[in-house]
Amino acid sequence: MTSRNIIFILKIFIHISALLPVLNLYYLALLDQLGADPVEAVIHFTGIGALNLLLITLCVSPLAKRLKKGYLLQTRRLLGLYAFTYALLHVVNFLAFEIQFDVALFFSEVIERPYITIGMLAFLLLSTLAITSFDGIKKKMKKKWQTLHNSIYFLIILVVIHFYWSVKSALILPIIYCLLCLIVLILRYQKLKRLILSIFV
């Protein structure tokens, strides 16, 4: 099996495993099978899904390095775009089903509630990454493209704080995600050290 074939199969697998759960989610929602508060259910599911996908995206490079299979890096864009898709659904669900298109309330909540402000910042940043993910733009941006996309390390921290602040009292899951976030960052300790030094030196 050539690496081209493996990548093809991997991408099919990623498409299926990313799309199926969210399609199933909305299918169950249409049938009113998501419990008494389907709004909370869809918002939580798409949020956790986006976070999971971000973490998976951040595992690809260390994995490719460890297994010495550079072609795995080609899955990053697809995974990242699915993270964006879930995040977009998360925001749209919030606006459409929670806030129910009361635009004034939407803006006041984004501004007044710190956990939503930080979440919105993360989403805007992720949107920028999604929009500039195409080869054409990458070529035009040259070095700036990599600088922009390095912000994913900052992004994941924002997302984890957003989750932590959103919870009433059951902190165990946010704490687990904090640890996972720490792990994916520590996996690239050398690279991050260089990046941070390059900003300040």
Partner: peptide
């Protein structure tokens, strides 16, 4: 996977 577990946990009536 990708939150499907969370879906079943939190969403199933």
């Amino acid at each position: 996977f990708l939150g499907a577990g969370a879906l079943l946990n939190s969403a199933i009536s």
